Computed example of a mutant assay.
Amino acid sequence: MSELKVKQSDPQEQQLYRSLFLSKTPLIDLRAPVEFAQGAFPESCNLPLMTDNEREQVGTCYKKKGQEAAIALGHQLVASDIQNRIEKWARFKEENPTAWLYCFRGGLRSRLSAQFLKDNGVDINIVPGGYKALRRYLIEVNEQAADKKLIIVGGNTGCGKTLLIQALDNGLDIEGRANHRGSSFGKQVTPQPRQISYENQLAVDILHISQHSNTLVIEDESKAVGTLYVPPLLFAGMARAPMVVINDPLEIRLQRLCYEYCTLMTEKFSQALGPEQGWLAYDQYLHNGLFGIRKRLGTEKFKVINDVLDAALKQQQSTGSVAGHLNWIAPILSDYYDPMYQYQLGKKTGRVEFSGTYQEVKEWLTVNKK
């Protein structure tokens, strides 16, 4: 996203923003809930000065009658509940002594809120430039990451690419932060974040990694991760970066996928929805995932594999065993995922610097960390 791509942040302000994110400073976001829902920062808490309706009324007034009238209306609208809002800010500051606050531009809403707090005996710092400046800074972080040393981890489905990224202290987990595995079976129990929040979190991760490593290790992924998109310049950097490829045996890959798709997702759905509704949601998750690749498999093959999936679910429900799922996971690897990935990898062979088992690739990346 580049919706705030204007002049670059001031160097001193950049240092402040970097410090705020690296220290995980708690942030009071004064924007209205509708603004916060569009995108937020990892350590931010929405404690708005105005409700959505109040903000809308003030905005309309500003357009029709100007700033002075809008400010007067804003005071009038929040007057009856302002003490309650101040108490929430004060309580947050008491629980988080290092907290800062901001509104969209670090202007009127921030100054008014800080003054309200000060009148009630609470001092708090205002983020200069507000949300807009913080967001612009994180956009710059993502864009500049494309010029860092990037190493891309490839390999067939089930090779443990995401597991490896998560095991490395310089791994940038673009799938984990998107809350999606990046495949037809990638959907998680909880929803994906908003695009802006996703980009913000990736940028903060990059800042943390950059403290101890000049290299970012990222999974070989398409531009889209579920409904989200990898920041464009970062993705462009990934597309030209050197690669390492995991070549794990089929049996190990099958066991990993059976655990991720079946054992783990059964547990997650059950925990989130309860045993009965969780099972129905899990059943639907697997059927939807298979349905998503039906055209690639072909109608007849899809029907056969779908019957195998039904039998595996029946066995799992009656015995608790997920072993039957190997019987449908294996053919979707051999008939869809492996041929597709090998075709894509064939266009990248000139970028491959090392290949080996999961453990061998992990050791190579550790040695080449810097």
Results as ranks from 00 to 15, higher is better:
Y198C: 03
N200H: 15
N200L: 06
Q201V: 15
A203C: 11
A203I: 08
D205N: 13
D205L: 08
I206K: 03
I206Y: 05
I206A: 04
I206P: 02
I206C: 04
L207M: 09
H208T: 11
I209Y: 04
H212R: 11
H212Y: 09
H212S: 14
N214C: 12
T215Q: 14
D220A: 12
E221S: 06
E221D: 03
S222D: 05
S222T: 09
A224G: 00
T227A: 13
T227G: 08
T227P: 00
L228R: 03
Y229M: 09
F235Y: 15
M238Y: 05
A241L: 07
A241I: 09
P242M: 07
M243P: 02
M243L: 12
V244A: 04
V245D: 03
V245T: 12
N247Y: 10
D248E: 15
P249E: 12
E251F: 11
R253L: 07
R253P: 03
L254K: 00
L254P: 01
Q255W: 00
R256V: 01
L257R: 00
L257A: 02
C258F: 00
C258M: 05
E260C: 02
Y261I: 02
Y261V: 02
T263S: 09
L264D: 03
L264R: 10
L264H: 06
M265G: 01
M265Y: 02
K268L: 15
S270Q: 11
Q271W: 10
Q271D: 12
Q271F: 09
L273I: 09
L273N: 09
G274Q: 10
G274A: 07
P275Q: 07
E276D: 14
E276H: 13
W279Q: 05
L280K: 14
Y282A: 01
Q284L: 14
L286G: 01
H287E: 15
H287M: 14
N288K: 13
G289K: 06
G289S: 10
L290T: 03
L290S: 01
F291R: 11
G292E: 07
R294Q: 13
R294V: 09
K295A: 12
R296S: 11
R296K: 14
T299V: 14
K301D: 14
K303R: 14
I305H: 01
V308Y: 05
L309K: 01
L309V: 08
A312W: 04
K314T: 14
K314F: 13
Q315T: 15
Q316T: 07
Q316R: 10
S318P: 06
T319D: 08
S321M: 08
S321G: 04
V322R: 00
V322G: 01
V322K: 00
A323S: 09
A323M: 09
H325K: 06
L326Q: 06
N327H: 15
N327M: 12
W328E: 02
I329V: 12
I329L: 12
I332Q: 05
I332W: 04
L333S: 02
S334M: 15
D335R: 10
D335M: 13
P339Y: 12
M340A: 11
Q344Y: 10
